[in-house]
Amino acid sequence: MFVSGETVAALEHAAIAVGRLDAALAGNPLRRAWTFWSELDAARRHAEADGRKVDLFRLAAHLHGLPLRLGDTTSAPERGREIAGLNYAIELRSWMAAPDPEQVRLRDIAVDSLRNCGSGQPALVAAARGMLDWLAGQGSRPAIRTAVPLFLRERGVTIHALAAVTGGDALRSGSDDPDGFAVRFLDAVRREAADSRDMLLTMEREWRDARTKVGRRTGARSTSRLPAAVDLLAAAPLLSISALAEALDCSIEGASRMLDALVQLEVAAEVTGRTGRGARRLYGLKRLLPIRAVTTAPQRRTTIGQRGRPKRVLTAPFAELTDSPSMAEATPDVEPAEPARLAPASFDFDALDRLVAAADERTRNVRRLLDRIARGYKPVLRNGETEEPGTSTF
């Protein structure tokens, strides 16, 4: 077996990054929350690689059925292109989160193709060569990107199926020779794994800070459900009052009071900007507050001032922020200290399973609705209306 020196160096860096991410996820209570956000971010990156730029905040809001705020200069064609891009990203996420039978069939074929190209080669190099051969045969891009994490787990490179590690950025423009594509693929894998590990560490830090604030509020009371509410907010960043009540098996009024208490503690925030008892309000940890900026228009000025909207400044949902100028000047080669892990024994995985199942069902409903609109039928039947001939309701 011969592998060029440039490929060996890229392989080493990619293997180290993937190993660190996989080790950080082992036994981590936030692994399912990380999986949700990594799938969403991977779908965003894949859509951009396919020529459709999508904003992560707007994608999260669109996935949860929230109306998006229009810009001052947004025209109807621009609005249509954005919605088409968001729907395309949701379709890409369905390959990882809730694939239909046809997607499963194509994904399994892609995995078999990677197996056939991987004889006698390192798994990551085999994945790169297999992806190049698959694309040369006009294979489906989403299928091969979804197959890479499964192939790496099958070869024993990872313990988990890392949805974020697909090497999808290698599908951008560049050299198409095998060695050049392999290096580009390995560099993309390294970046994806490193960014995903940073995301996981940031989620742990945010969860730990929220639990600390809640612990000061509850003291030694073992009957308080506020810590469990924080756990679910960390696992399902956009959470409704009814979903929290169902997960914790409590009343709607009790869940509403818990969320109001967390808002007062500045642990959580209402991200949809809606008011009133009948409105569907969603909550998340404070890092996701910028979602409100893309779903609701800013309030009108009450005092006389400069005309026009204030400048909107958004922060990446899991960007690592420095606390002081001295930290910002630190050398990038220094490995950040990994925070102490929270005890996983207090995490209610049964409640989280119910939330994950509800999120998957929402994804399937959105895909069915989009398919219905694409076929030219009404999205929802009203009372007294009948289904078009040759179709069936869902």
Rank of each mutant, 00 (worst) to 15 (best):
V313C: 05
R216E: 09
D371F: 06
P101N: 06
R312D: 07
G5N: 15
T218D: 00
P67S: 04
S75V: 08
A89C: 09
L25G: 00
P336H: 13
V8K: 14
R208Q: 11
L352G: 05
K213V: 07
G219T: 12
A89F: 05
A98W: 02
T275G: 04
I304Y: 08
F318M: 04
R32Q: 11
G254W: 03
P332N: 10
R205K: 11
L70P: 06
R184Y: 01
A43R: 03
S94F: 05
M131S: 08
L66M: 14
N116W: 03
A220V: 11
R225D: 00
I159L: 06
D72I: 14
V183I: 15
M96H: 07
S4Q: 14
Y88I: 09
E246T: 12
L238R: 02
A194E: 07
A49T: 11
P336M: 12
C250L: 13
T393F: 11
S392N: 13
V271H: 00
A161C: 09
A359W: 03
T303N: 06
F57D: 05
F2V: 14
L289Y: 05
A110D: 01
R382V: 10
I291S: 01
T322D: 07
Q138L: 10
D371G: 15
L233K: 00
A42M: 12
G5F: 08
D100K: 12
A127S: 11
V8H: 13
D179I: 09
A220H: 12
G5R: 15
